[in-house]
Amino acid sequence: MTPLEVGQELELKSYPINRALLVAYANASGDQNPIHQNEEFAKSVGLPDVIAHGMLTMALAGKYISDIAGSAAVKEFSARFTKPVVVPADTDVLLNIAGKVSSIEDGRAKIEITAEVDGVKVLGMAKASIAI
């Protein structure tokens, strides 16, 4: 891994989210809430359509962080779920993730993460601390 520097902007990456991924995440995580799979149910509770699990969005941001120094290096990771990611049928929604090194101290790098879909922030205050 190339050494990180404070202020460094990390490469933007895009992660496609579709209905099949929501089913796969539901099975992997055990979160079978129907708002993430069933359009009719989602609409019946006032949502515009099926929405992604907030924790799926965070898991994909976790992959972004893991790619910097490996999963085992991730020590802290936090995020707010600011906007739901709406996932229509037969469509890939692109989750765009970028990061910036905000500090390096005591063998830890802090990364500030931005995550957006169609220009709308879906995670707030997202940050991670990784061992370097």
Binding site: Y25, A28, G62, G70
Partner: peptide, 14 residues
């Protein structure tokens, strides 16, 4: 597999 992680020796962060 869901997040596209190929290293399965340790669990992904979340």
């Amino acid at each position: 597999a869901v997040v596209g992680e190929s290293n399965t020796q340790v669990a992904p962060p979340t």
